[in-house]
Design a protein around this nucleic acid. Structure first.
Lengths: 164, 164
DNA sequence: CCGTATCCTGATAGATACTG
DNA sequence: CAGTATCTATCAGGATACGG
């Protein structure tokens, strides 16, 4: 039994597709290279060359996506001083960038399960306990919930925006 | 303090980018329309026309992505009989498709927070309690963990595949 | 209602070469 | 090390028209 909408959203005058958070998110960061650059940021990469090399894209692509993510607010370009070295700069995650971690880990978890034959190459673990992490859907009440226990409804208080 | 790799993955002979689960996942379902079609499946849509209309794409795009998702194993095309009606078919989620729910909800949650002005349009709640759901990263030990408490390491037992 | 076929635009991304 | 510039191939996706 699948999840269910309280009422079908057929009334597109109220619910425009381009109001959807998922669609907006995909418009902004829904490319392979953008997600992979974020992955690298989570792994600890901070410098231009590191992103280009480890993601395996050309400098042109790395530059474009780094600019995009920086402009969008997921990364911040900061000056970076090392003792006796000339000033460099690094790309650091913002809160906005960090907050996408569950989405990226969820993708990884899913890919590990279905797109690798047998063993997945990397393990993400809790540092202190070395136990693997898992992405879960939980209710505020504290229960882990699956698709069958979900319901979707229009948010009271939300009003459609003007047409463009 | 960011997450840290046990050792930097500069050795690309061991760690090819195209072995990455995230990259593989993005190759398969990393387009706006594919994700939005999955969203609709989670919302309960099962028929061709519903997908095309609600996602807001042309039939050509809907057909292509539905085929893609079906071929990949996230959806299954099933015969569908209604009393006294001619046979139709519906697109049903497989376990593989359901298992992507956390990723899609994580995207939605992130978009709600950063890409909507003020109030998010839709609410996903636990049916029985009406309390909103949240996507979380948890360790097997049961703790919710943030980026700072994570560590990434090569999985023992994993061996690189032959070059292509 | 469920698609297929064709044409077209724009964006992703590779290759290569060059600057501060 | 950190990019920019150009040129090109591939693909997502819109528009439109047509067939089961």
């Amino acid at each position: 039994m699948p999840a269910v909408m309280e009422q079908p959203l057929t009334d597109l005058s109220k619910w425009k597709t381009d109001e959807c958070s998922i669609g907006k998110a995909m418009d902004l960061i829904g490319t392979r290279s953008a997600i992979l650059i974020l992955r690298e940021a989570y792994y600890g990469t901070t410098r231009f060359d590191g992103f280009a090399t480890r993601v395996g894209v050309t400098e042109a692509v790395a530059a474009k996506q780094l600019r995009r993510l920086t402009d969008a607010g997921l990364l911040r370009k900061q000056p970076y001083r090392e003792a006796g070295q000339r000033t460099r700069h690094e790309y650091a995650l913002t809160e906005m960038g960090r907050d996408l971690l569950p989405a990226v880990l969820a993708l990884m978890q899913w890919g590990d399960k279905y797109l690798q034959e047998g063993v997945s190459p990397l393990l993400v673990v809790e540092d202190s306990t070395d136990s693997p992490v898992q992405v879960q859907v939980r209710s505020a009440a504290g229960n882990e919930v699956g698709l069958e226990q979900l319901r979707v409804r229009l948010n009271r208080g939300w009003r459609p925006r003007k047409a463009r």
